[in-house]
Computed example of a mutant assay.
Amino acid sequence: MKKIINEPSTVVAGSLTGLELAHGDLLTVIHDPAVIVRVDAPVPGKVAIISGGGSGHEPMHGGLVGPGMLDAACPGAVFTSPTPDQVTTAIEKTDGGAGALLIVKNYTGDVLNFETAAELAETEVRTIVIDDDVAVKDSTFTAGRRGVGGTVPLEKITGAAAARGDDLAAVHAVAERVVANVRSMGMALTAPTVPHVGEPSFDLADDEMEVGIGIHGEPGRARVPVENADGVVARLLEPILEDLPFAEGDRVLLFTNSMGATPLLELYLAHGIAERMLADRGIVVERRLVGPYVTSLEMQGMSLTLLRLDDELLELWDAPVHTAALRWGN
């Protein structure tokens, strides 16, 4: 195992210290329990948007804390759910009197711990569970589909709804529309290595790729010979398109995501192929996001996410955002 670390047990704490030093204008880190909070929290009268999950997926979620997106993020240990007290602290630190929306990826530990915190909260709380992964129906990490790349547009769009002054019921309704219209699938050429484990999560031969992986290194729906970029993109895109299903004339956001080690040279190549394949089907790509936003440590691989857009979701995606990882608008 080759990593730029001191001790596996201190990786997350040290990373959070560096995050705060790098982006202290946007966020503050509470170290016990570990919570990342926007620097101006709580914002009076605004619904708080809170998410979190295991570390190792950076910049999700801590890099998405700031105006127009998350009010707080709860970082667990690497690939490990945050605890209820982290979520409780996040709610308390961001409570501006309008309640909180908890965005939870569909992993058993995340769901249980966020639910526990919601029950303990002294403000009104609603929860939305994201389960956009079309690759598998169940896994050892989930009851049902996993929450993966669709989490980023969900956090961006609900963050914008809260920033424009929507109440909790309205923000939750927007979140439900995103979850109903977003689908994702990923693949891997290599496995990630969790620092405290010290060895890859699974073994792949040099001529193999895993299709349908999760963001914690979970195995996928098939292990097949390595294909060229056209073949890889088709393997990811076809199941996504069939699942909703997406149809000719649909307007979409296309999110092409690196799992951590795939360089932008390859990622832009894959994105261009995906746009061509969608155009061939009469599906209109109105917005794009390309880059490493939902990673799996140093996994070499990629995922595709499609969100079917309407005028309001498009407006909310375009609304200003200012975080460490995403920023546009005034």
Rank of each mutant, 00 (worst) to 15 (best):
I5P: 05
E7I: 15
P8R: 13
P8I: 15
G14H: 13
G14M: 14
S15R: 11
L19N: 06
H23F: 05
D25A: 14
L27W: 11
T28W: 13
V35F: 02
V37S: 10
V37G: 09
V39C: 13
A41K: 10
P44V: 15
G45Q: 03
K46S: 02
V47M: 04
A48V: 00
G53P: 12
H57S: 15
M60F: 14
V65I: 14
M69H: 01
A73M: 05
C74A: 07
A77N: 10
A77E: 11
F79Y: 14
T80L: 11
E92N: 04
V104F: 03
Y107A: 05
T108V: 15
G109M: 08
D110T: 09
V111H: 04
V111Y: 04
F114C: 02
A117T: 04
A121T: 10
V125S: 07
V125N: 03
I128A: 06
A135I: 02
V136Y: 04
K137V: 14
K137E: 04
A143I: 06
G144H: 08
G147T: 09
V152F: 12
A163L: 11
R164E: 13
D166P: 01
L168D: 03
V171H: 00
A173S: 08
A173T: 06
E176G: 11
E176R: 13
V179L: 08
V179E: 09
N181T: 11
T193R: 12
P200R: 12
F202M: 15
D203V: 15
A205N: 15
D206V: 15
D207V: 10
M209D: 07
G212Y: 03
G214N: 01
G217A: 08
G217F: 07
V224E: 02
P225L: 08
A229T: 09
L237S: 09
L241Q: 04
F246K: 10
A247Y: 09
A247Q: 12
D250V: 11
F255N: 04
S258I: 12
A261H: 09
R276Y: 15
M277L: 15
G282N: 03
I283K: 00
L289S: 01
L289I: 10
Y293K: 01
Q300D: 14
Q300P: 07
S303H: 09
T305K: 05
D310M: 08
E312G: 05
P320M: 14
T323D: 02
